[in-house]
Design a protein around this nucleic acid. Structure first.
Lengths: 352, 352
DNA sequence: GGCAGCATAGTTAACGTTTTCTACAGGAAG
DNA sequence: CTTCCTGTAGAAAACGTTAACTATGCTGCC
């Protein structure tokens, strides 16, 4: 009885039979890690072509080989910044003949864990996590730590990108971009232009990126001796709609501020929309600053003053580190990079 | 001898030993498709929790079960439109407790085939391909047809989204959005506003989406009796930079046109940039129209007149069709949906 | 000429599940 | 008191690879 035989694709055994050799020989031809005679090699190759054979990943993985696949996990593909980073990963992976897969967590940590888990099981060569983490719990950290260890012991690597490290003894690579300093620099810029009442549109309250940017903003206020009672901070999400709504609310309330520092360029786009609705001109009536420097920043009118983050390079570097096998070596202790950010002055902030 | 034991995660056998039952019983508890005594069930569940066990996907797949994973393959994550579609897929998948994975082909058909192949081997529950196809060769079609059949016979499904069907006898679902009519409508709009010399910025010459949009444009010209010698068509890629450069070249050449119809909103953003550089005001000096209606269209100034395509819904629908199991039934002949598009009039096109 | 060593090839045991098939109780029915 | 279910459990055979062992001719050397 043929059992169920859901797929009818030829197996390695089929190829072996067709070529008149043993399965082992076929495997060897494929792997190329063992001497095979010229004639056998040719016959096998011909059979493979004729049968249109392709190896079963699962069987391979089960037998212990790593797949040449790298995974990239982010919250939402719709964000330009992380999409750029994803592209960087993809580039570097392709350059080395690897495939890359993207998974999205929608900001849900359970989903994120499930994805990392899935990738570990798929025997991905590396897993890159990008973006801040929300509401990090002890349980989450523990599970992620386990996964990092498990990944590492399987010859793979977990790379954390733009998020807090898990701990010194956890085998991960960490790549950060400077949220705190970037925000500090931008707020300093706004202050230097004479602005004193700056509305800060943060992201979710307990999201690490948001927390860091807010903290940089506050430190600048403190250093410049500008009072900061927290009433000019608003928490939302990293979308255009959120920026629009938050600004509108404040405007309706008749709140007094001369500048808005949006935690993200897309949020800034929302600010522009709200300002336009109230007949306010940027930058004369209202200064607006963003963060990320995505393509959109150049399409907004006036062009948006923002903080540049090299997302694509970030992604490329993450992939490079992940794919370089130095971390396989016994004495490897972890890798840590910090990408710097800088203010890009355009036309959305005027001198007061 | 313990062989290599690369990963130290607990196996089903470990759980069985811990719970004092046979592996089969553990499997049954997990699958829930066979009667298991109350006590055994409880012990197994407890062991699973205590050992933090999770099943190995590969072994599962090898034993013939499908994974609850859906794959979405596109050319480039950086494009807003397809990112929106990806989000739609993700939403629908998540709603049903499935995970979704995104792969990018970078417009390379070999890479695309490799991804579909990979997903087939991973036993994905469905594979959705979105976006036009470039330079479609007979060999490509043959291979994709094979993959579609193979996917289908494994109880999975290939969904083609916004690309030409493979043929009536190939078991795929096809979802299209109307490129030809959308472009026809937009060009009609431009013509009705008095424009006669319209520069059309197409995508790659042999890319299906580009071809369809161009064809709609041309049909409108024909219907309105406007001469069309092909000199007002320019081929590029779907990026801002391409739109910028192409427009700039024409402007430098002193070409005579009153409107630009960009095959994509981001391309239109590039047109805006070039126009600004030459001191041309949109829409007074130059009318600009786009296609896709992504968020950017509302952030450009003046706001961009464009053709709306319901990308997110497209993605959601694709996932729905893919995950609905009706196509498993014997008499299933294929599914075909067509999403309509419509012109969204904003402020970038003036009456001549 | 016997024998170590080498170049190939084949055998077979993993890898971690699922799923038959078989087995064995205990209770109902005759 | 048999006999036959019925509810549960275990043994074992897949699934398609890889890699560690064996096995077998040869070649070349003492």
């Amino acid at each position: 009885m043929a059992k169920r035989k859901t797929t009818n694709s030829p197996t390695l055994a089929d190829v072996a039979a067709h070529a008149g050799v043993s399965p082992a020989t076929v495997s060897r031809v494929l792997a190329g890690n063992y001497p095979v005679s010229r004639s056998a090699n040719q016959r096998v190759m011909r059979s493979i072509r004729e049968l249109n054979y392709s190896a079963n990943t699962h069987a391979r993985a089960l037998a212990g080989v790593q797949s040449k696949t790298i995974a990239f996990i982010l919250a939402d593909v719709r964000g330009q910044s992380f999409a750029d980073a994803a592209h960087g990963v993809e580039q570097e992976a392709a350059r080395r003949g690897w495939l890359s897969l993207i998974g999205t967590s929608q900001g849900d940590s359970a989903r994120e864990l499930a994805l990392v888990q899935l990738m570990r099981e798929q025997r991905a060569g590396a897993v890159i996590l990008i973006g801040g983490v929300t509401n990090e719990s002890a349980e989450y950290r523990a599970k992620m730590t386990d996964l990092a260890r498990s990944l590492h012991s399987a010859g793979s690597l977990l790379v954390l990108c733009g998020r807090p490290p898990l701990g010194d003894d956890v085998p991960t690579a960490v790549i950060e971009y400077d949220n705190e300093h970037g925000a500090y620099a931008m707020t300093s810029h706004l202050l230097s232009q004479g602005h004193r009442r700056i509305l800060f549109l943060a992201g979710p309250e307990r999201q690490s990126t948001s927390v860091q940017r807010l903290s940089g903003h506050r430190r600048a206020l403190l250093d410049f001796g500008v009072p900061d009672d927290g009433t000019l901070v608003e928490h939302g999400v990293f979308t255009r709609a959120s920026g629009y709504q938050l600004t509108k609310n404040r405007l309706i309330a008749g709140q007094d501020f001369t500048a808005v520092f949006a935690a993200t360029d897309v949020v800034a786009a929302g600010v522009y929309a709200a300002a336009a609705e109230f007949g306010l001109n940027v930058p004369e009536d209202l200064a607006v600053a963003g963060y990320d420097d995505v393509e959109l920043a150049q399409d907004l009118r006036p062009r948006l003053t923002t903080v540049h983050v090299p997302y694509e390079e970030l992604g490329r570097t993450a992939a490079k580190i992940a794919l370089d096998s130095q971390h396989q070596q016994p004495g490897w202790t972890g890798d840590h990079r910090l990408f710097t950010t800088h203010v890009v002055v355009r036309n959305s902030v005027g001198r007061l």
